[in-house]
């Protein structure tokens, strides 16, 4: 369908906004062959490498997308291959908040509280249409749904779909890895 055809022939959606394609394709062969873990680097790079390869998500599901998140952690897709399979129940020990599902107005202060409880550096993944901009629940004069997770927490990765497949979540985590490795400073 799309014109951005990759080597493996997987289709990409032709997006209106081309800025949404990642800087470096984390799914390319290059990224998989050379995980760049043993590369000697300055301390900052080393720490970033550690962070990128140890993204512990918060045990935290909001709605139906959480089922796909569980599937991504289960045997068939196994997020633990990338070191992201340690779901920590306590926000104090988690690095990534996977916002999986519809965020109701009632839930949003709780999410903000959980986010504030997480220690820096921390990241957030918006999984599914509802967390990107309200999704199917967004219509004029609606009063129940928070229209997008980025109204509550700063989101790093957006994964569309209703719900996204587990592969999409893994792709999101791999892209987050690239972002962490790039060494940008994050605050809050």
């Amino acid at each position: 369908m799309g014109k951005v055809d990759r080597k493996d022939g997987v289709v990409r959606l032709p997006l209106v906004n081309p800025a949404n394609t990642p800087v470096r394709d984390p799914l390319g062969d290059e990224a998989m062959v050379d995980p760049a873990v043993v590369r000697l680097a300055v301390l900052d790079d080393l720490l970033n490498l550690g962070r990128a390869n140890s993204l512990w998500p918060l045990t935290f599901g909001l709605a139906c997308c959480a089922i796909e998140m569980m599937a991504a952690g289960a045997s068939k897709y196994d997020m633990d291959r990338f070191g992201a399979g340690v779901f920590r129940p306590s926000a104090r020990q988690a690095d990534v908040m996977i916002l999986a599902g519809t965020i109701s107005k009632k839930m949003s202060p709780v999410i903000r509280q959980l986010w504030d409880q997480m220690p820096s550096p921390k990241w957030a993944i918006a999984m599914g249409g509802c967390t990107i901009d309200g999704g199917p629940f967004k219509y004029p004069n609606q009063y129940a749904i928070e229209e997008g997770a980025d109204k509550i927490v700063p989101v790093d990765i957006y994964i569309p779909g209703c719900p996204p497949r587990p592969e999409a979540l893994i792709a999101g985590i791999l892209q987050l890895k690239e972002k962490v490795k790039a060494g940008r400073r994050f605050e809050g």
């Binding site: 369908m1 032709p14 997008g148 999101g172 892209q175």
Partner: peptide, 20 residues
């Protein structure tokens, strides 16, 4: 379509269907 692993750094997910 058969796109299954979309993920990006941006919240803009408008797809241009006539682009191709």
């Amino acid at each position: 379509s058969k796109a299954y692993d979309e993920a990006g750094y941006n919240r803009d997910w408008r797809v241009d269907l006539v682009a191709e």
